[in-house]
Design a protein around this nucleic acid. Structure first.
Lengths: 145, 145
DNA sequence: TCAAATCTTACCTTTTTAGTAGGATTACCA
DNA sequence: TGGTAATCCTACTAAAAAGGTAAGATTTGA
């Protein structure tokens, strides 16, 4: 019942890009240094995010990545689902409703459906912007003397 | 982000024992036939549940297992946590608060703590009895003509 | 044309998952 | 008192997933 490192790092990468969301392309080298994750591993992660249409990339010298949309237009749920495939707590729910013959009589199925709902509702209720805002509150920068 | 088969089967095993909660000891052979899980695999599962004090066992001929408490006194959360170790969505939270030096400044930590809370609150809000009751409603036995 | 970046494909090691196998021990019961 | 049906205990194993690493091709700005 764990989110993989790819999911966690993807979230940090997206937040990093959101923090530096100037329209410029940010290199993986920069992100790697700030987030302490190797460029090679980040490459795997951005491949998924770019294919999902979440990032724009620029090859060549001074290339890099930037967000395709505004930070408020990404839910944390969709970012995690790109990396994890889905956030269903059991395999039965991955392509529900499916052909399981026990579904009608399955006592535990409604319970698992409910668990899936609280998880997905929660992660869908946060956006990159939400987390950025709570971050600046955390740092208290706004009110520092 | 998946509950293992051990967690899922443990829940079905506990529900099976709750349905046949007459005070008699129920053999794994019976449970195996009803739940379609091998006796050998069930043995592994009951070992954990017995050591956790959730089951009483009786060895020898006509032996088996029964619940140690009333079905209303088991939350689904505690059953799953025995089998899974814990239900934390990321490793950082397994022994939180811990020594992570980034905790203070970690933007994502409060988000993960919130996710852990909705998951654990949900699974703690159901008991074996709750599921049994919804099962009999599902079957509609009470009101059948 | 060089350097710095992305892109692509392949590979590898470790851990976890999902079991299976064999036999020892216990206790009811005829 | 001996057979049988159950739990108990220790080990093993195959497959899949997790968590990366490696090498090099391609692109592009300066």
């Amino acid at each position: 019942m764990k989110i993989s490192t790819k999911g966690r790092y993807a979230l940090r990468l997206m937040l990093d890009l959101a923090e530096h969301n100037t329209g410029e392309y940010i290199s993986l080298k920069d992100i790697s240094e700030r987030q302490n994750v190797t460029v090679k591993y980040l490459e795997q992660i951005v491949t998924s995010l770019t294919r999902a249409g979440f990032l724009r990339s620029q090859r060549g010298n001074n290339g890099g990545y930037r967000l395709a949309r505004h930070p408020s237009e990404y839910t944390i749920g969709e970012i995690l689902r790109v990396m994890e495939g889905n956030l269903e707590p059991i395999a039965c729910l991955e392509n529900y409703p499916n052909d399981c013959p026990r579904a009608e009589e399955c006592v535990t199925l409604p319970f698992w459906i409910g668990l899936s709902k609280v998880i997905n509702d929660y992660v869908n209720s946060y956006t990159l912007q939400t987390l950025l805002d709570s971050a600046s509150e955390l740092a208290g920068n706004t009110y520092m003397i």
